[in-house]
Amino acid sequence: MRIIAGEWRGRKLSSPKGDATRPTADRARETLFSMLASRLGNFEELRVADLFAGSGALGLEALSRGAAHCLFVEQDRAAIDTIRANIAAFDARSRSTVEAVSVMHLRAAREPYDLLLLDPPYQTGAGSVALDRLKRLGWIGPATWMATETARDETIDVDGLSIDAERRVGKGKLTLLRLTDPDATAG
């Protein structure tokens, strides 16, 4: 796995050992960030959260492209160690925070994030459950983009969120979402 573009383009990423995580393949990451770039223009100064972070590849890709800060959320110990090692290798400590907790146990956000990147375990429905919870806890605002990677046949369905785009890549599906009604934030 390598960073696709930006400041750290071509630099290698470490992956957690074992099969507890499923890192997003370079091709899927390239497709996802192309989809996001066509909507966002650039990633400069964005506040990003990489949820179900695994190796941290999605968040580090956003930082490489200019994001101001990334919160990495992961509960698997080996994955947390890998995320921290990748952050250190890229000298990104000042722009990164790692939370060793389940996404389902996150607290209310102080303010909405600009971009939420979710790569939950396939076929669990965890992406929909997490997005519903994060919407209620103020993580999602009128300007927030959400991106998920799920199994090809898995559906993201959350009241108040609408699908902007979907792409099938390999065994997965990338979905971009927005608030259906910008006034339907935390409730």
Rank of each mutant, 00 (worst) to 15 (best):
R22I: 00
L116D: 01
P182D: 11
D91L: 01
C70W: 05
T185S: 15
G187L: 13
R168F: 11
G6S: 02
T21G: 10
W145G: 06
W145Y: 15
R178D: 12
I80L: 14
G10T: 03
T148S: 08
I4M: 05
V73G: 04
A37S: 15
D119Y: 09
R110S: 15
R29N: 04
I140M: 14
L131K: 00
D153H: 10
V73Q: 00
S162T: 14
L118T: 07
E154H: 05
A85G: 09
V73Y: 01
C70S: 11
R93M: 12
S34Y: 08
T175H: 13
R22P: 06
D76L: 02
N86V: 06
A5D: 01
P23A: 06
L176G: 07
T180Y: 14
E99Q: 13
I156T: 07
G10A: 07
I80F: 10
E7I: 02
A184K: 09
R39N: 14
R168M: 11
I87A: 04
G66A: 08
G138E: 10
L176Q: 04
A68S: 15
R77G: 09
G10V: 00
D132V: 00
A37W: 10
M1W: 09
F90E: 02
R178E: 13
L71I: 00
S94C: 10
R178I: 13
A126T: 05
L13W: 10
R39T: 08
A67K: 01
R107Q: 08
A62F: 00
V98I: 09
A143Q: 15
